[in-house]
């Protein structure tokens, strides 16, 4: 069977949805709403790139939603104080990287299970933020909106940044040795060690990366609206994990790629507009997403059972 069967089937499903939309709800293809949809998904895509790394490395990070909120509020506050965006951006990414490094230390250094570690940091960060901010919004100065560009230019810029990151990282995962190390560690950490790779270091670094990417995504979030909500990252982790898993990245590590994750993200992102355009109530979105995750995981499970 083709090595990329899994990715191709997601692309096929995405194509089917897009064709269905073209037939039953051509209104979906208006340029402005489509651009808005892509803009909305751009920060998610950035985080999904990081999540793909983490899951390929056979770990998981469910604290990204909380990290996203924390960095959004912190960066928003700095921007509101009049810091230039070019300075806020690296600070936001550094803050995200630090938060990720904390997770990475606990997982790689102390060898704690990543699911429980990030569950704990998820709640600690979210509640800590709430405690400090009391749910208060941060008002953003107009100059920050869309990086100070016009709305459509800002939207295009955002989509371009996300796609550039996707392409750069996707290529790096294939064509730079470090990217292959992530696969090696996710496939078999012990064999990787014997091949001269340091699995603990790789594990630590993927958490740092997802943190930094979450910081970047938070920046893309705060320039989109006049106010920064402290709960903006709620549920982001699930959306991102779902996209990555649906896109063919195996939860057991070592398999999958960013292109698949991108297709998975687009597929899931189409659920909500598809529901509205097809006149199904939007409340089904979460249930359908959960169903898609289970379907993808079960499909992988059945496949790996057949192989053994």
């Amino acid at each position: 069977m083709n090595r990329y069967f899994r990715e191709l089937s997601v692309v096929g499903a995405l194509g089917a949805v897009l064709i269905a939309m073209a037939v039953f709800a051509p209104a979906f293809y208006q340029p402005q709403p489509l651009l808005s949809l892509l803009t909305r998904e751009a920060p998610t895509l950035v985080v999904a790139c990081g999540m793909a790394l983490v899951i390929i490395c056979r770990q998981i990070d469910i604290s990204v939603g909380s990290m996203f909120s924390v960095v959004s509020v912190c960066a928003g506050l700095l921007a509101a104080r009049g810091w230039p965006l070019l300075l806020v951006l690296p600070v936001a990414m550094l803050l995200g990287a630090l938060l990720g490094a904390f997770n990475g230390f606990l997982v790689a250094g102390l060898r704690l299970p990543s699911i429980v570690v990030t569950l704990a940091t998820m709640v600690a960060l979210r509640q800590g933020l709430n405690m400090v901010r009391q749910g208060e919004f941060v008002n953003m100065p107009d100059a920050v909106q869309w990086f100070g560009l016009s709305q459509s230019a800002g939207q295009w810029l955002m989509v371009a940044i996300a796609l550039a990151l996707l392409v750069a990282l996707g290529l790096a995962m294939r064509h730079v040795a470090a990217g292959r190390f992530v696969y090696a560690v996710g496939t078999d950490a012990e064999a990787a060690r014997l091949a001269g790779i340091q699995p603990q270091l790789v594990t630590f670094l993927v958490f740092v990366f997802i943190g930094a990417f979450t910081g970047l995504a938070a920046m893309m979030n705060i320039v989109q609206s006049p106010q920064v909500q402290p709960l903006s990252g709620m549920g982001l982790e699930l959306k991102v994990i779902a996209a990555v898993v649906v896109g063919g990245v195996a939860i057991s590590g070592g398999r999958g790629n960013l292109w698949g994750a991108f297709a998975g993200l687009l597929l899931l992102a189409c659920v909500a507009p598809a529901l509205t355009h097809l006149h199904i109530e939007a409340y089904w979105e979460k249930a359908i997403q959960g169903g898609i995750i289970l379907l993808a995981v079960v499909a992988d499970g059945v496949r790996s059972r057949k192989q053994n």
Binding site: H175, A178, G196, G254
Partner: peptide, 28 residues
Amino acid sequence: PALFPDLTVAENIALRLEPATASRRVDW
């Protein structure tokens, strides 16, 4: 055999033979 089951044959051989430097470009 202690190989990486998810990776291709070419890559398995490469991981044994190429130096473990992270920044190197992978020449497929």
